[in-house]
């Protein structure tokens, strides 16, 4: 039990560590790259971050229960394609179809994990393959790209702005705020922490562990589908090649944000900061014109490693 005080210290340092790193990165970038601080660039940055934030929000809940959801990258792409296809039947179809299908796959993930006690890693890996395969099947192996009519209301959802800030930014912000309240101020949120903190004890304390798990995987799938729909609306088409490896991006930002990969501890705010950090790094690398954009991954990877190493060192 003595490790716990250290773990608490880690939590504080880590969350603030990510925040400090974000502020530092932003300040330095602002000074070094004149274009970084421009309103256009900041709007673009926030918009890019909003899609990942929606996916990472669901992942935060899943990881706090001690699980993992590898299917979100595929569901993100599938959601986009379904939205684009559905848009020919109107706004409602474009929005509800991806949410329903991706939510259903998330529900199946949750049912399998909670009821049969299979490892989340395996179950969601299967869904990753399943969803990607489904996507390729309905798009003739990616050859068909469904377009969304540029003047439709659905495109407005992705491209509309308030003071130049895209709607997805507000949607993501509202969802994260809601997520934070659910996590900290509702029974369900407490059950999420209890399930990930000590599952056996949670069962004995009367926590509906199975229902909680089903809930987080369903939410994660639904949110990935929503992120896909928003992306499709923004791009005006269902792009089939997106979302490869996005599940790993989502896991990275959650962990960078201070959520324990072993479960039981984490915050939505930390995840939002993690998203900001990754997106700022990517943005800066884009500003350095001479660097290949592939270095984005290199830097993100190094950063994640540093965070995990720090986690370890601080816990000792």
């Amino acid at each position: 039990m003595t490790t716990l005080t250290a773990a608490t210290r880690t939590k504080v340092l880590q969350r603030q560590g990510a925040a400090v790193a974000l502020i530092l990165m932003v300040t330095v970038s602002w000074l070094v790259f004149p274009r970084f601080g421009s309103l256009d660039n900041l709007r673009d940055l926030a918009l890019q971050g909003s899609f990942l934030a929606v996916i990472a929000l669901g992942m935060t809940f899943v990881i706090i229960t001690g699980g993992i959801d590898l299917s979100v990258g595929s569901l993100y792409a599938l959601g986009g394609v379904l939205a684009a296809w559905g848009s020919q039947y109107g706004f409602l179809a474009a929005l509800t179809l991806p949410l329903a299908v991706c939510g259903a796959i998330g529900l199946i993930n949750g049912l399998l994990i909670a009821r049969t006690n299979m490892a989340p890693f395996i179950v969601t890996l299967a869904s990753l393959l399943f969803a990607r395969g489904l996507l390729l099947a309905i798009t003739d192996e990616g050859a068909t790209t469904y377009q969304i009519a540029p003047d439709s209301a659905f495109v407005e959802l992705g491209r509309g702005t308030v003071f130049g800030f895209g709607y997805p930014i507000f949607i993501a912000a509202a969802l994260c705020a809601l997520g934070g309240v659910v996590l900290n101020r509702t029974n369900f949120g407490q059950n999420v922490f209890a399930t990930g903190g000590a599952e056996q004890s949670a069962v004995l304390m009367g926590v509906p562990v199975a229902r909680t798990k089903i809930g987080v995987y369903t939410a994660s799938g639904t949110l990935a589908g929503l992120a896909g729909a928003l992306t499709a609306a923004y791009l005006q088409s269902g792009v089939t090649v997106i979302g490869v490896g996005t599940e790993l991006d989502a896991i990275s930002v959650v962990v960078i944000g201070g959520t324990l990969l072993t479960g039981g501890m984490g915050t939505v705010l930390g995840t939002v900061i993690g998203v900001g950090l990754i997106k700022v790094i990517q943005n800066v690398i884009n500003q350095i014109g001479t660097l290949d954009s592939n270095y984005q991954s290199v830097v993100s990877g190094v950063f994640l490693l540093i965070v995990v190493v720090l986690q370890r060192m601080l816990r000792r």
Binding site: A7, Q190, F193, G197, A198
Partner: peptide, 17 residues
């Protein structure tokens, strides 16, 4: 059989806050 990572108060009232 409680959850060590959650606060004392959260453990005490879990399920009937």
């Amino acid at each position: 059989n409680l959850v060590p990572l959650m606060s004392v108060a959260a453990n005490l009232f879990l399920g009937r806050e």
